[in-house]
């Protein structure tokens, strides 16, 4: 495990380059180019605001902002998983022809999406101010929540990417599962809205504490529930270690199976 991490660190330059490639290649050839990184969330926000303020009126005050606060970190997770699951198969040319720690491929996807998420904050924070939701000291908890979430996203993406080499259906299954997972996560609605008899179900959803924490620090302006966040981070850490171990085992045959 330690050896594995050292090896990845030795190839950090490649990781950096792949992340840059991922970020720039996405909008390469389009007129606005990198600006799309900002336009995308902005346009999403505008659409939501119009729909939920004028068409489908939701009782919750600043509903579109509530939605936006939960949606951005969710996208970080979901996009990482969906792009990451195919990353090793897609990078087959490289895997078959050169040596590098294979973890680099899914990791570059996670980091690229992390950067995208951070950049989208440049839209989120001003938007919050505009609709007069106060930014409080609770923002200090943001890095902690982000790190905890990243542990989970990394573990999940590594595991999916490695398993997909041997079982290609995973690519399609991931898409469906992510959609279902989205609806069973309190992003479109606050957790309080869930009927009490179903609340037990949500205890098994690992991302609830994270999304809840983001809503706390951005939307409600309060510190997150440290106990549930802490247990989440602990679980995510164990999951990541497990994923790395499984990955290391599965990666031996990548070059022949792809």
């Amino acid at each position: 495990m330690w050896q594995q991490i050292k090896e990845i660190y030795a190839y950090r330059e490649m990781l950096k380059n792949l992340v840059a490639k991922e970020l720039r290649a996405r909008y390469k050839g389009s007129v606005l180019g990198f600006l799309w990184t900002f336009f995308n969330p902005l346009l999403v926000l505008v659409v939501y605001s119009v729909v939920f303020s004028f068409v489908m009126r939701v009782q919750l005050e600043h509903y579109s902002m509530f939605l936006f606060v939960g949606l951005l970190p969710w996208n970080y997770l979901a996009t990482s998983a969906q792009m990451g699951v195919a990353s090793i198969v897609a990078g087959g040319g490289l895997v078959k022809k050169t040596y590098f720690p294979r973890e680099i491929l899914p990791l570059s996807i996670v980091l690229a999406n992390l950067v995208n998420y951070l950049l989208s904050l440049f839209i989120l924070l001003p938007a919050l101010l505009i609709v007069q939701i106060p930014l409080t000291i609770a923002l200090l908890a943001f890095p902690v929540v982000l790190v905890a979430q990243t542990l989970l996203v990394t573990g999940l993406t590594l595991l999916l990417a490695a398993a997909n080499v041997y079982f290609r259906d995973l690519e399609h299954i991931t898409g469906v599962v992510m959609m279902a997972w989205f609806f069973f996560t309190p992003i479109l609605y606050p957790l309080e809205m869930v009927p009490p008899e179903l609340k037990g179900l949500f205890l098994f959803n690992p991302v609830v504490p994270v999304i809840k924490a983001y809503q706390d620090i951005f939307f409600y302006g309060q510190f997150p529930d440290w106990a549930s966040l802490g247990s989440f981070a602990g679980g995510a850490m164990i999951f990541l270690v497990l994923s790395l171990t499984v990955f290391n085992r599965l990666q031996r045959n990548f070059a022949e199976v792809i």
């Binding site: 190839y11 330059e13 380059n17 490639k21 290649a25 390469k28 050839g29 022809k97 050169t98």
Partner: peptide
Amino acid sequence: LELGAGFHPDFTGRENIFLNASILGL
């Protein structure tokens, strides 16, 4: 083994040098 594995067609030669060199561990 295979030359130019890992080149990205949309990037310039210079950018690809950095990308490729880093894949080779530089």
